[in-house]
């Protein structure tokens, strides 16, 4: 089962290494990981996507919480949440395909962020599956380079 954990951390050197070391040392999975400062610059928020059975994910949550520099761990996939990823994709765009690439980008509500005579660089955001979908569509046209972020996620406000 896929779980998305939101982890509030002290924004100090070495903290990320404590988290990743915990995962590698105990054989837990990291599917993706994304971390940045919060509004309070002394804290950072880390979104981590992992997979495992319920007991494993419970252990992961408890072990994370045991790290002194970890303040809060929430398994946000336990309730309603929104998640986003971003990808920058450089796709071949030559005479015959330029128009088609633009149409695809438009369908996925992407943006062209760099243009050259032979390619477009596209910015696209969305859920993991949406990013995967545009990649699948663009692949036959010719993807030259791709950079993806990890997932970031936020619980939905209570109704």
């Amino acid at each position: 089962m896929k779980h998305t954990l939101s982890v509030l951390l002290q924004n100090k050197p070495g903290v990320l290494s404590r988290v990743t070391g915990l995962f590698s040392g105990r054989g837990f999975n990291i599917k993706s990981l994304s971390v940045a400062e919060t509004l309070d610059p002394s804290l950072s928020c880390l979104t981590l996507v992992t997979t495992g059975s319920d007991p494993i994910v419970e252990q992961i949550t408890k072990q994370l919480h045991k790290l002194i520099d970890v303040i809060k761990v929430t398994d946000i996939s336990e309730s309603e949440y929104v998640e986003r990823e971003m990808a920058l994709i450089r796709v071949k765009a030559e005479n015959t395909t330029r128009a088609e690439v633009l149409r695809v980008i438009d369908i996925f509500r992407g943006k062209v962020v760099d243009v050259s005579p032979k390619s477009y660089a596209v910015e696209v955001t969305g859920s993991s599956s949406k990013i995967q979908a545009i990649i699948d569509i663009l692949r036959p046209i010719g993807i030259k380079e791709i950079v993806r972020t990890g997932t970031i996620a936020m619980a939905r406000a209570p109704k």
């Binding site: 070495g14 290494s17 404590r18 070391g21 915990l22 040392g25 002194i68």
Partner: peptide
């Protein structure tokens, strides 16, 4: 040594 002992201390500091 902080890096080396991260997994075998309760906590460590530089």
């Amino acid at each position: 040594i902080v890096g080396i002992t991260r997994p075998c201390t309760k906590h460590n500091y530089l």
